[in-house]
Amino acid sequence: MTGRLGLTYALLGAAALAVAVLSLAVGAVRVPPGVIINTLFGLDGPTQDFIINASRVPRTLLSALTGASLALSGAIIQAILRNPLASPKIIGINSGAALAVLLAAIAVPDLPLGWQPLIAIAGGIAAVSIVYAMAEFRPISPARLALIGIAVGFTCDAGVDFILVTADTYDISAPMIWMTGSLWGRGWQHLEAVWPFLTVLIALGLALAFRLDLIRLGAAQATSLGMNVRIERLVMLAVATLLAAISVSVVGVLGFVGLIAPHIARALVGGASRQLLPASLLIGAVLVMLADAAGRAILPPIEVSAGVLTALFGAPFFIYLLLNRPSHGDE
């Protein structure tokens, strides 16, 4: 069992590395592996300093970091809601962020682009806070939290749709690219802005693994095992919300990663959070790096949004996983 787990992690790590190299290689200009190595390690021979160091390295790192964060957030939310269909989207993060960004875009058309991430984070947090406050109004249950999340999400989506059809296209062009989930034009400054927060949050999320396992036993059993379910659930929800909201703020609405990565992880390493969370994290990083690389490689120099590709290729794979999973009739 331990040997198999070790092998799985080794393979996941190798996959992450391979996809990272691929992500450095592909795009409008193809860079051969030899040149990548020369550039990264300062070796003699042909190099591609600008394309690799200034553009693709930060972009690859950012896609790995946000992919990992979204996947971890999804795994935490699935555990809290005890629902395999849950993801950051289901508690309103994505829709709240999107609505806030669009509202800001039409209210203050001259708003500097640098504000967009902050507004997205605020919108995501605001949506989750509303959901949580309403769910907490009566004794909280995972099902009610999810249902209220969906309702608030739909309300925000209605606002988004309204703005999209009524607003001046010019005002909302930047938000629209962001909304499909894209790493286009993302560079060092974006990575520098988010990595300290995301790294701390990832560490926190991983540290919560054992408590997350207890909460998956249901509130009654978790209480019986000495948990303060209300407070600990709130902390977990806060970590998951921040992970997703910060990621979404820089790379846009990459909704599918948070849903699918934990499922792939569960199929590979089982359901115990101490295995599930790190595996989800690696898979999320691989998925977003892969989607971003593929988006650059398919129709260069045009870029296809990573969000479009994660859904396009992720969804069939997700269905394949669900159909092939051994059933114990419990879900």
């Binding site: 005890r82 998956r216 009654a220 059993q221 569960r266």
Partner: peptide, 17 residues
């Protein structure tokens, strides 16, 4: 929890545990 344990009526079975 170290003094008293309680098994709820319908314990939840988490998947893949």
């Amino acid at each position: 929890a170290r003094i008293v344990s309680l098994l709820p009526q319908h314990p939840v079975v988490p998947p893949a545990i």
